[in-house]
Each structure stands twice: as structure tokens, then as C-alpha cells.
Design a protein around this nucleic acid. Structure first.
Lengths: 327, 327
DNA sequence: TCAGGGGCTGCAACCGGTTGCATGAAACAT
DNA sequence: ATGTTTCATGCAACCGGTTGCAGCCCCTGA
């Protein structure tokens, strides 16, 4: 069995409280005593039990991070950034995957609630109502979802959509398709609203589409039929699937049709042609989420809303509009 | 503040121990009493505090899962499988990313030690010596690394390499390059040993290479110069990079050179040509890791070694050897 | 010489649960 | 009517730490 604080106390001839203070408030204990205790502790391989400590202090120094699908390449950069940022502040991050299942998500939150000081909810699948209810059990920071009264981080996909469309119109494209995402998606709604508000462009909305390669493949026929020369896809996976589908039908990218994705995932860089994409500030979001959470511990309830800018990465899947578009 | 067991006891007029038993040993409490307690608990929103429970029982019902790099597409399927499998057994999985840093890895293990019942170490970067030392603090299951006296899961990449090479020779390829991985990699050594033991094939070993797209790009020139018609790459990222590099130099895949990758990551399926690859049993490994860990709880120390088979997924990056190879 | 004060340590209650043991009542057997 | 089980519950110690309070020692200043 691992050594406890009492083992150390006994072996070094002091009271447990002195051992405790040696670790949690060293300045309160005499240097000589402290060194002796530390030596004994080292010797016995003692390490404070964080769970037990949390019981009295109410602080676990752990943060939970919940994502819908860890295999979605969008998340890892956010996770890594949050993890590194938290570490530097003496917090640890536990990641859990809900497998896109709201039921599992709720259960995970319940489980985590008592083992962490707060939870970062990334693109949650739960309804706002449930989130608000669970908020009574543990502090949240919500990423990519608007929930009133809670610290929130949004990535400005509307602005990203504008950048993408400006890029396309700048290349001479006039008729542009927007491949929307799943019907309930907040992101998709934002993109659509932003795109619809722009002028100098004929917008064709196609969808909803599954947010996967398959979704892109399936919509290829429709894209060709719509007579557009430029496409803004819901995300990179859809864009890659679309390019594949177009290719199978003898339509070349970017020669015949230009395609822009969203998320700037690694696979987009490996694709041929390399994908032009709206890069999301995922790492920044991860760091900021940690900051907002820690901040909410200190200062009581100060729900903040942070909106982060996106930017466009131009690669090979976009080019000047063909002079005589098919269609 | 969240309701505690004492709040529930007070409100339902029973002793705390009865409330405790209502949740942890329901058969010991009278049905009527139990229902009353449950109703009150529901009413107060009470949930047992797992951390506190762990303090006395010594069981947290949590499992730690440590990976070097969560953004490596090899890991997510393993993580998801482990998570789902554990959930079905009333365990929860916390994932942590070490960022490829052994220092961080050790620290994470220390932190997790008291908050989980055991840790799954996936492709650890720590030395065996350190792993053995840490083993005193918390049970391990090691994946893709051989550590004596510890439950271990290995994926049989040697067998995978044989499958790949048989596939290539079956297509008429005689001269084949093996792009090895980082010099310390266990996987790379296994592949090389297996390949070297096969006959009917002229093997050219090129490397070590960085296990990334860049590594594949960089070795393209050498591959062309070596006069091979078939290539087995250390992993899919290297394979994709290589194909890119060959393409830039006017060498077509699979027409001129056939390429096989390892890992069967999603990006390989999105690549053009779609990558033929040795699929690793990652999901099975995740499930089995959980099983071995739970098993080690029950039956004391019974370190097991499980070796899992790989299989070959043939797609578009391999074809018959050209009759007159360049070179 | 003595009051006052600071530094260090011990005491004991507490965090939120679990569990071995004792107790009491009801049910059963004789 | 008495002894024996069985069932349900209460009691209290315990898990591994933290922390407010009190006490002791020693130094300082008047």
C-alpha cells in the first residue's frame, strides 16, 4: 500500500498536521522540520492523495473536457492547447468522448462533476435546458454553443464564411453553393446567415448534408447540376468528399469548380488538390476556455462571451472562375 | 452546495448509513425505506460523491488512458473503443495527452495514480525502467511496448509486414523498399525483422524516416533511385507523403510504383489514390486493454501478453508490377 | 522581572462517504 | 413461553488529507 500522511508523521516523529503543512503551506513549518519530513516522505515514496485533499479543500485541480467525437480532427488541437495551458497553471485536464450521444454526455458530466473543478463543454450535443440544469452541479465553459448565463467561447464562422466567399468572388466566381451541415447545427446556421447577407453573389444552398466525406460525395451530382463555379462546404470532410465525387464525374478542382472547406484539418493538407479552408482558432479557444474557467473560480459569477476570429488559408482547391462555366 | 448523504439522511429521517446502503447495497435495506430515501435523494438532487467513496473503498471506478499524441489518427479508435467498453462495465475513462514528452508522461501518471484504479499506457515514451518504478503506484496495462511482468498488448506488425509484402509479390513485385520509422521504434524493428526473413524478394531498406508526411516526401527521391516497384512505408502518413513526392517527380502510383502504408488511418481513405494499408486492430486493443486491467484487479497479479493480428486492406495504391520497371 | 508577541507545532473536528458490529423487533421453531 | 434466526437499522470508526484554535517556547522591550 502507498504511504499516507500518517506513515510519514510516525516515521518522522511529528504530527500529521505538520506533514500536511509541509506540503500545502511550507512557510508555516520550521525549515529543519520541513527538511526532515521531506526526506522521510521521499524515502517512503509518499505523495499527497489529491482526491482526499479535494474532499476538504473543495479543489481538485482537475478540469474535465468533453467532446462529442475525439476522432474528429477538429478537436485534438483544442484539447492539446487546453491541456498545455492548464498544466502551466497547475491544473490537469481529463478528456472524455461522448460518442455523439447526449445520454452519455449527461452521464459523463455527472461522473466528472465531483472529480473536477469545472468542465469545458466543446460543441455539446445536449439541449441548452439540460446544460443549464447540470450547471448547478459543476461550473462550465461552453465552446461553440450559446448558452445564456454561462462563460462562452464562439468561433466566428460567420466571419469565416464571409472571408471564403470574398475570396471566391475575388477570383471571379458569381454563383456559389453553400453546402450546409446537419439541420440542428449552430455553425451551419451562422454560415448561412452570413452568406445570405452578402451581395454580389448568387447563393445556392444545398443540404442539409452529413458532416462527413460521405455527405460531400452524395451532394456532388447536385453541385454539378446547380451550375455553380464555387463551393463553400460545411467542413473539410465534406469538401474532400465533394472533390472526390466531382472527380469521379470528370469535373476537376479547381479548374472547373473551386472548393473551400472549413476547419483546416490535417487531412485537407494531405488531400490533392490541397484544400483551401477556413482555419478555426481551435488552439486559442482551448487556452481561452481554460482561462475563463479558472477566472470564474476566482471571481464568482462573471459569465463572459468571447468571439474568436477565423482566417482563410488559401491552397490549391480554389482558382479563377472558368470563363464559360458548364451548366 | 450539492446535497450530501447527511442532507438526505436528515430529510428522510434515517441514519446516513442507511442512505449509503440504499445506493451501494440496496438489497440490505427495506423496500419501503429505500423508496423513501430514493425519493428524497431525487428531490434534493443528491448524487454519491465518487471521490469520497473511493477514499474508503479504494476503488474509483475510473481508468486513466495515456497517449503520446491525441492528434495522431492512430489513437482515437483505440480511445473510443476503450471508453465504450469500460462504460459497459461501469468504469469511466479519462484520457490524457503527454505531448510526446516523457517528463509530462511521468507527471501525468503520478497525478492520475490516486484518481484511477489503473492506467492504460499506449505506446509509452518512458523507459521501461521508469515504467517499472511507477508500477508500484498504480496498475498498468501497456499497449505496443514490451515491459516484463506487466499485462501487455502488442499488435503484430511483423505479421502485417508479411501480409503487405506477400500482397506485393503476388502482384509481381520483386524489388521492394521498406521505409523504416524513427530509429528507436519497436514497431519499425519488428517490421524490418519480418521483412528480412521473407524470401523471393529483394529488400531495400531506406531510413530512418520521420513518421510524418514530411518524412515520406523527403525519401521520394531515394525511392525512385533505388529502382523498386513496390514500397512498404512505416505508416500511412509516410506513405501519403511519399505518394505526393513521387507525384511531383512524375512517378505515378500505382502505375509505376505500388505503395502500402500501415495504420489504415482515415486520411488514407481520403487520399487519391486511396491507400492500401495494413490495418491495426486498434479498437480490439482498446477493448482488450480494459479487459486485462479489470482482470488484473480481480485476480491479483497475472500478467498476460496478448498479441493481436493485423489485416491488409487493399485499395488503389497497389497494382501489378510494371513489366519494364524504370531504373 | 514580566507582559506581549511571533513562530512553530499539536489537537481535534471535519470533508462525504463505507462498513463491521451491536441492537432491537419480528418471525419462526420447539 | 422461550430460544433462535432473520431482517433492518443505528452506531462509530475509518479512508487521507486540511485547518481553526490553543498552547508552548523564546525573544523583545519596558
Amino acid at each position: 500500500m502507498a504511504a499516507t500522511i500518517r506513515d510519514v508523521a510516525r516515521a518522522s516523529g511529528v504530527h500529521v498536521s505538520t506533514v500536511s503543512r509541509t506540503f500545502s503551506a511550507p512557510h508555516l513549518v520550521n525549515a529543519e522540520t520541513r527538511n526532515r519530513v521531506l526526506a522521510v516522505a521521499e524515502d517512503l515514496g509518499y505523495r499527497p492523495n489529491r482526491a482526499a485533499r479535494a474532499l476538504t479543500t473543495g479543489r481538485t485541480h482537475n478540469i474535465g473536457l468533453i467532446v462529442a467525437d475525439i476522432s474528429n480532427p477538429f478537436f485534438p488541437p483544442l484539447i492539446k492547447a487546453a491541456q498545455a495551458h492548464a498544466r502551466a497553471r497547475d491544473y490537469h485536464v481529463f478528456v472524455a468522448d461522448t460518442d455523439e450521444d447526449p445520454q452519455v454526455e449527461e452521464e459523463l458530466i455527472q461522473t466528472l462533476a465531483k472529480q473536477v473543478d469545472g468542465v469545458l463543454l466543446c460543441s455539446p450535443r445536449l439541449s441548452n435546458r439540460v446544460i443549464e440544469r447540470l450547471h448547478a452541479e459543476v461550473p462550465f465553459v461552453v465552446v461553440n454553443r450559446r448558452v445564456k448565463g454561462m462563460p462562452t467561447i464562439l468561433m466566428d464562422v460567420g466571419q469565416g464564411a464571409r472571408l471564403a466567399i470574398e475570396h471566391l468572388t475575388g477570383l471571379g466566381h458569381r454563383r456559389i453553393a453553400l453546402l450546409s451541415g446537419p439541420s440542428g447545427s449552430w455553425t451551419s446556421g451562422e454560415m448561412r446567415a452570413a452568406a445570405a447577407a452578402m451581395d454580389g453573389v448568387e447563393l445556392v444552398i444545398l443540404g442539409p448534408n452529413a458532416p462527413t466525406e460521405r455527405g460531400g460525395l452524395a451532394v456532388a451530382e447536385e453541385v454539378i447540376a446547380s451550375g455553380v463555379t464555387g463551393v463553400l462546404a460545411y467542413n473539410d470532410l465534406v469538401a474532400i468528399g465533394l472533390i472526390e465525387g466531382l472527380y469521379e464525374r470528370g469535373v476537376r478542382v479547381p479548374d472547373d469548380i473551386s472548393v473551400v472547406g472549413v476547419d483546416d484539418i490535417v487531412a485537407g493538407r494531405l488531400n490533392r488538390p490541397k484544400l483551401t479552408s477556413v482555419a478555426m482558432p481551435t488552439a486559442a479557444a482551448g487556452r481561452m476556455a481554460v482561462d475563463l474557467l479558472l477566472q470564474s473560480f476566482d471571481e464568482g459569477a462573471t459569465p463572459t462571451l468571447a468571439t474568436l476570429d477565423t482566417h482563410l488559408v488559401v491552397r490549391e482547391s480554389t482558382d479563377r472562375a472558368a470563363l464559360f462555366p458548364r451548366g
